[in-house]
């Protein structure tokens, strides 16, 4: 059957290796997990392909070291891919491979078509800037110049993520972990991107704060109909938010399916182990 909808993001055969590789590790069988014992090359992402469709949440699970975060860094151009292709429907009608665009164009894509929330707020925020200033930074990077408009947009966003208006000029370093994550989310949303990348956004937060961040993500997704790629090692988070899920192990996607398929009828040995570890 022909596809009945067009993906927002399409990733084809993404590979990322750290290190040059050597004749020994050309043969994948000789790797120890995804590491070459001879030259020390780490194959972080191996032949990863997937699509993200409008308005859906795609979950990515896997143990630490499985390549989830590296994949997200590649998608946001924080890392350069070794090879592979990525297409965004909102960028030249999905006809240009993002990974081959100039760094200037990649910056444009980052600032206009994508938003990212890092696990570590230090990577996503300037801790000494005011919160609203952090949002303005992204707006300016996207070419906005009108201060009044940016102030309004910033206030509106902070309001949306439940940061009290009177604290908008405070720096994130004064905020709790949950608040910092919410400022990051506000910043990521500032240019109304069709695609949001969330990398372990609730890891390390206490349960009630985690719940408020998850509720926020869910309601934003419903309201704005934004597409989300959500990386987490927490199956509870995945179950709550993701429509479809990829399972990664040693840099590869070993299984993918509807989230209830992954949770109730896992096929791969590792996925079964993961699901059965769920409390």
């Amino acid at each position: 059957m022909a596809e009945f909808e067009v993906p927002v993001l399409s990733i084809k055969n993404l590979n990322k290796q750290f290190g040059k590789g050597c004749p020994y590790c050309q043969d994948e069988e000789s790797l120890v997990k995804n590491y070459c014992p001879v030259c020390g090359t780490v194959y972080a992402c191996r032949d990863v392909s997937f699509d993200v469709f409008p308005g859906e949440v795609l979950g990515i699970v896997g143990e630490s070291g499985s390549g989830k975060s590296t994949l997200m860094q590649c998608l946001y151009f924080d890392q350069e891919v070794t090879n592979g292709e990525a297409y965004l429907a909102d960028y030249h009608n999905g006809e240009k491979n993002l990974f081959q665009e100039s760094s200037q164009q990649q910056r444009y894509i980052r600032n206009n078509i994508m938003g990212k929330v890092y696990q570590n707020p230090l990577l996503g925020l300037k801790m000494n800037f005011s919160s609203i200033g952090n949002i303005a930074e992204k707006l300016i990077a996207a070419g906005n110049q009108h201060v009044g408009m940016m102030e309004n947009r910033g206030t509106e966003l902070l309001n949306k993520v439940n940061i009290p208006v009177h604290r908008r000029k405070e720096a994130p370093k004064n905020f709790s972990g949950g608040m910092q994550q919410r400022v990051q989310i506000a910043k990521a949303l500032s240019n109304r991107p069709p695609l949001l990348l969330l990398d372990e956004v609730t890891t390390g937060l206490d349960l009630s704060v985690q719940a408020s961040v998850l509720d926020l993500i869910k309601s934003l997704q419903r309201e704005l109909n934004i597409s989300i790629v959500l990386v987490s090692h927490d199956l509870g988070v995945i179950r709550m938010l993701a429509d479809r899920t990829l399972v990664m192990l040693e840099g590869r996607v070993i299984e993918q399916g509807l989230t209830d398929q992954i949770l109730e009828d896992p096929q791969h040995r590792y996925t079964q182990q993961l699901v059965h570890s769920l409390l």
Binding site: E3, F4, E5, F53, E56, R244, Q256, G257, L258
Partner: peptide
């Protein structure tokens, strides 16, 4: 929407 469809082979998005 899809006419005759084999659910065993439907894509994830079709099932959704």
């Amino acid at each position: 929407k899809f006419g005759r469809i084999n659910l065993a082979e439907a894509t994830e998005r079709e099932l959704l």
